[in-house]
């Protein structure tokens, strides 16, 4: 029960952050693919920098153990990502931002979004046996993490990732690596 309450509270903060970042708006999601508004990229990379630094620090101190790491099977992760991007650009949401947008009272999130996800879930569940095992079998590294797979220090990797993110933020915000939207 306690776990359910904790999860509910975490979900509320999650949805709140999506709303405040503007990701519950169609144009925010699509415009990152048009390079006219890079908020999605800034939001995701900041979240990654904060969470990876925090989690590896906490693990180093022995305060957390990692849950099941999402599995790496190269073709499936990549092809899944490629198909996912098409859906994102068409709808202007992903499952999380759609749930938050529905909470804001947007009917074009609540109705076609939720019905679409349920339909997609049924299609996947009914074709799982034919589709998933063959893809999952190609180049499968199980629950790998980069520090162990490449034998690099996690500290070094996270430092590099952070510096790269900061450089990218600098290029976007100060050097102007962003297109002007000529159809505003």
């Amino acid at each position: 029960m306690a776990n359910y309450i904790i999860t509910l509270v975490l979900g509320i903060f999650f949805g709140f952050s999506l709303n405040k970042a503007g990701l519950t708006k169609y144009h925010k999601i699509v415009n990152v693919f048009r390079f006219t508004d890079m908020a999605v990229l800034k939001f995701m990379m900041t979240a990654l920098v904060v969470s990876m630094s925090g989690l590896y620090a906490l693990r180093g101190l022995g305060l957390v153990t990692f849950p099941n790491v999402p599995a790496t099977y190269i073709v499936g992760n990549l092809v899944g990502g490629l198909i996912f991007g098409v859906g994102m650009a068409l709808s202007g949401y992903c499952p999380g931002t759609c749930a938050a947008g529905a909470g804001e009272g947007k009917m074009d999130y609540l109705i076609p979004g939720v019905l679409g996800f349920l339909t997609g879930a049924v299609l996947f569940g009914l074709t799982y046996q034919q589709v998933f095992p063959p893809i999952n079998a190609i180049a499968n590294y199980g629950n790998a993490i980069i520090p162990e797979l490449w034998n690099v220090s996690a500290f070094l990797f996270i430092t590099m990732f952070t510096l790269m993110s900061l450089l990218l933020f600098y290029l976007i915000d100060r050097v102007g690596w962003q297109r002007k939207d000529s159809h505003q």
Binding site: G80, G81, G87
Partner: peptide, 21 residues
């Protein structure tokens, strides 16, 4: 378009092993 996109998103998340979050 949103419905078609949502079907694609959910199916793709199944293949990839998760979505954006």
């Amino acid at each position: 378009l949103a419905f078609v996109g949502a079907v694609i998103l959910e199916y793709a998340a199944g293949i990839a092993g998760g979505c954006t979050s």
